[in-house]
Write a protein that binds this DNA or RNA. Structure first.
Lengths: 229, 229
DNA sequence: TTTTGTGAAAGAGTTCACAGCC
DNA sequence: GGCTGTGAACTCTTTCACAAAA
């Protein structure tokens, strides 16, 4: 009966993909890498789905976004599928990442990225503490935050991680956006207010732990996860 | 035409609430605390919604889960609403939390919980490194992981955070479940396979950064966030 | 057979739109 | 007027179920 029409959401880039699909594709690829490393040649959707903790139907639907078809007899060829997902996900060229805040969390992030992820490298760290500035940290130069604009333009950085105390996060984010950042990963437990063309992802540890504690006292009903990323 | 019937998902606890609603309620409460601290007495839904980066309609719908009604003239009374959300979210008694892995990330987590969150306290830390075991870390005793079962039973811990290398995470998780944990927050970048009555939340930093990097190179379409937690 | 890829249906979550109230 | 609470509509996501393939 309703004659409504809400066109909305014109495709972005080539074809519009939801964040949920992107996250799962990233996850599938990681699992495929492990499989390839352990010598597996082929996987069926139900096997890969089990490893990723999703249903086989969901996996297959997600893979429709990638240009690759499996064989009904052998399933998916591990390395080929991994490459096809990569072709979909990866930037044409490596992306440089900045890290702001070199406290415990910042150092943990450095440790995380040591060795892996050649396409995403932390190439600059920032802080305000004079003791942490103008040094090399895990092979990466650190600067005072006041130099952000210059350094980030120079190195062409457009992705940054914020690992500073909550009180400083908004001002740091403003500085980064001013320095040309397009996309942010924020670990401080404040919601950042930024221009709509900047993509922000919050990893809110406090909220997440409260959530986990909340669901720790449910009756006994099995509930699925597939949560944060 | 289809005569299908899929009853499914019987309510859990009192009334079934989705994870998304729980996360947002936790977020609203944090913002209400800040507002109360800064002396604000009343908020309208559109103000609180703006601070939480959701629509006013969504905020109001989320609040339907909480036993509290606002006034059309003054909006919501900050401290009262905060308390009502607390009554919904909080455990009847404080919850004890364990932390496994006292590396950089583990120490960052300690720093995170210093002072705040009186209802969620890290009361035991575990590691395998002899240098980190049988000491006090931020006022919290640390034990070898082999003592987990005893210590956790003794202290009645049923929530744990896993901050160990990926290779060790599954085995740690198995140990914890054996020790009676009902709910886990996992920071290692592996998907844990656990019995369905254990609630698991993954904070997968690698996946999340790849996601952020992916969305850093979108055309220019404004996309909302409200992501991981 | 068992598996893949995919329309179609179901289920979740969000937004619209309006009644009722101050 | 401007606000809240909420049924109804809408949109997004997942699951079902089946044709086609090897």
């Amino acid at each position: 009966m309703t004659i409504k029409r809400t066109p909305k959401r014109l495709k972005l880039g080539r074809k519009s993909v939801s964040e949920l699909v992107v996250v799962r594709l990233i996850l599938y690829r990681r699992i495929l890498r492990d499989l390839a490393f352990s010598g597996t040649r082929y996987v069926f959707s139900h096997q890969l789905a089990a490893l990723a903790d999703v249903t086989p139907e969901q996996l297959r639907r997600d893979l429709m976004n990638v240009r690759y078809e499996g064989s009904p007899t052998r399933g998916y060829e591990v390395v080929v599928l991994e490459e096809c997902i990569g072709a979909f996900l990866d930037p044409p060229t490596a992306q440089a990442v900045a890290l702001v805040g070199v406290g415990n969390l910042g150092r943990a992030l450095f440790a995380y990225f040591l060795g892996r992820r050649p396409l995403l490298q932390i190439v600059a760290a920032f802080d305000i503490d004079p003791a942490k500035v103008d040094r090399m940290i895990n092979g990466c130069p650190s600067y005072h935050i006041s130099e952000a604009r210059t350094v980030m333009r120079e190195k062409g950085i457009n992705v940054a991680m914020i690992a500073v105390p909550a009180a400083a996060a908004q001002s740091v984010a403003d500085t980064l956006v001013d320095a040309g950042v397009r996309s942010l990963l924020n670990f401080a437990d404040v919601r950042l207010r930024l221009p709509p063309d900047v993509y922000v992802e919050h990893i809110d540890i406090g909220v997440t732990l409260e959530k986990v504690a909340f669901f720790a006292r449910r009756p006994a009903a099995a509930e699925k996860d597939m949560g944060s990323p």
